[in-house]
Design a protein around this nucleic acid. Sequence first.
DNA 1: CAGTGGTCTAGACCACTGG
DNA 2: CAGTGGTCTAGACCACTGG
Lengths: 235, 235
Amino acid sequence: MEASPAPAYLRIAAALRDRIAEGEWGPGALLPSERELSAAFGVSRMTARQAVGVLESEGTVYRRSPRGTFVAPPRLAMRIGSFSDEVVRLGHHPQAEVLWAEGQVATPAAAQALGLSEGERVHALQRLRRVDGAVVAIETTYFPERLTPGLLEQDLGGSLWSILRDRYGVMPSHATASLEVVVLDDVAAKRLGVRNAAAGILMTRRTFAGDRCFEFARDLFRADRVQFEVEASIP
Amino acid sequence: MEASPAPAYLRIAAALRDRIAEGEWGPGALLPSERELSAAFGVSRMTARQAVGVLESEGTVYRRSPRGTFVAPPRLAMRIGSFSDEVVRLGHHPQAEVLWAEGQVATPAAAQALGLSEGERVHALQRLRRVDGAVVAIETTYFPERLTPGLLEQDLGGSLWSILRDRYGVMPSHATASLEVVVLDDVAAKRLGVRNAAAGILMTRRTFAGDRCFEFARDLFRADRVQFEVEASIP
DNA sequence: CAGTGGTCTAGACCACTGG
DNA sequence: CAGTGGTCTAGACCACTGG
């Protein structure tokens, strides 16, 4: 693999990566434009663009058309649990913005996860989750209606688990989750503020109070902004 | 986001994705070449190539130069634990190929994870992990030498945990792990058989027998071949 | 209104595979 | 040796932002 010299776009990507690692450009710094890079490295703009694309796909930089390309901040090391609590633990400021909230008949996936019979209803809501003002995740959550009467009249702009605990006496005890890397469609990419077809982490999650599953959720994270700390017991 | 018509490369990607989803092309099927696609859709080859790149980055297809582009198989839903056991549970055939194995002074990261003093030694090994013959992960593992005398003389081509259990009486009880999406460098990409700068999932892992951490590992997975099933208890 | 990234063209040459 | 994906060129026009 070291036999032939690396392609130009990889050499340029490595050169830029080094300068970022060395702190020459800190988080939020503006990189030279693709046209400037193509002149500086003596390649066409398409090749300079390919180099920046490598750094973008690894989360080192992000593009903001038509403003430029910027150095990305470091990732959040989150555990499975309350988004709000985790973000606070990491010393940042969490926010939630409700996109929609409604009662609906449980979808087959939600019904199965929550142990509901066919035709039973759920409270469903979707929220944008921000950290220090920037969108990091899109969260879609389902609760059994009969466990959470009047939930949609509450203030849903904060921690849902706090409402669950304080108003309904539901004490979360554990959670199970599935994590996978997905490609973001154009709607999700736009909401998360990343380019089309960027990588996302899809967490499909169930939260339990004792034996009872009371929450089913799909959380779609920006893959370049988070990492997950998990544990497992060995059977 | 639906205001303007989608760019050509996204429309072409969607068309190809649909035909794969409908089963017209099954796992392992050969897609039309980029030159054929550019003719069929009336775009330049660079645009057809961009469309195929979207499908590649989401793991729907993989490229094998100079043979062509193929439909990818479905992902493995793995839990944190023994690679061998998990792959068998999913109905597939696991293999391990030792790349290197040696005794060494513990690196600071390994020493800290394993609770060793400065200068203490570990058995370190790196293995390629295959599923049904195809490389899925590169596993780098560290064990305290004083817990595992003679380990490197064992057959390391199978389950390490079996050796630990049978020969050293170490019974794994639980594990902690950190999961993050990384970009693969050229060496890792070549070993995993994917393109440079493709996405990988880096699992940094510690395994315990009771209170004692006996294994520290970094497992680098192909992001397009696996997803992880995890659990958490809520504090 | 200068400058950005986003998209796209119509070519080129390369190493490599497999019949 | 035909055909593939990998890389690269030297342009073009676009929507959009922010001074």
